[in-house]
Amino acid sequence: MRTQTKLSAADLRHFEKLLRAQRHDLDIALGRIVTTLDGVIEARGTADDEHDPEGPTLTMEWSRISGVHSDLEVKSAEIDRALVRIANGSYGFCTRRGEPIGRARLDARPAAELCIDCARELEAQLKA
């Protein structure tokens, strides 16, 4: 077990500002993706592109854009949970073990819920 120090009030303000900026950027990206999805939905209703030899079909484009949209929603939810943890005083602590998450990890992944050890254990379990 590594010894970590609790984040200072200045650290928490820094991470909250960073997370809010990331959330804002995600909201913009989600808005663009929704507009793109709406365009594909509209085009899918009027076009028969399944036999078009040029480029991807609208169905393939729909799948690709839907995947990007889902990824952005997951990231957005992660940020929202991190902001809740800042508000309730649990930010910076591993949600699995309760140990402090290292500052370097939070700098790399401000929405991190797990310490690096727990993240590695979970990743190894998912690969097994």
Rank of each mutant, 00 (worst) to 15 (best):
Q4I: 10
Q4Y: 15
K6L: 09
A9G: 10
A10I: 13
A10T: 15
R13S: 12
R13A: 07
H14D: 04
L18S: 07
L18M: 10
Q22F: 15
Q22E: 14
H24F: 15
L26C: 03
I28P: 00
I28G: 02
I28D: 03
A29Y: 05
G31Q: 13
I33M: 07
V34P: 00
T36P: 00
T36G: 00
G39N: 11
I41L: 15
E42M: 03
E42Y: 08
R44P: 03
R44A: 08
G45E: 10
T46F: 11
D48T: 09
E50V: 00
D52E: 10
D52A: 00
D52V: 09
P53H: 05
G55W: 04
P56H: 02
T57E: 01
T57S: 07
T57H: 06
T57M: 01
T57R: 00
L58N: 06
T59Q: 08
M60F: 01
M60Q: 05
E61W: 01
W62M: 07
S63A: 06
I65V: 09
V68T: 15
H69I: 11
D71F: 02
L72C: 04
E73I: 04
V74Q: 05
V74T: 14
K75D: 13
E78G: 02
E78P: 08
I79R: 06
D80F: 08
R81E: 14
R85I: 12
A87S: 15
A87D: 15
G89V: 05
G89W: 03
S90K: 09
S90C: 11
Y91K: 04
G92K: 07
F93G: 05
F93R: 02
C94L: 04
R97W: 08
E99K: 01
E99D: 04
P100W: 12
R103T: 14
R103K: 07
R103E: 13
A104E: 14
R105E: 07
R105M: 11
L106W: 10
P110S: 11
A112I: 11
A112H: 12
L114I: 08
L114R: 09
C115T: 08
I116M: 11
A119C: 03
K127L: 06
A128D: 12
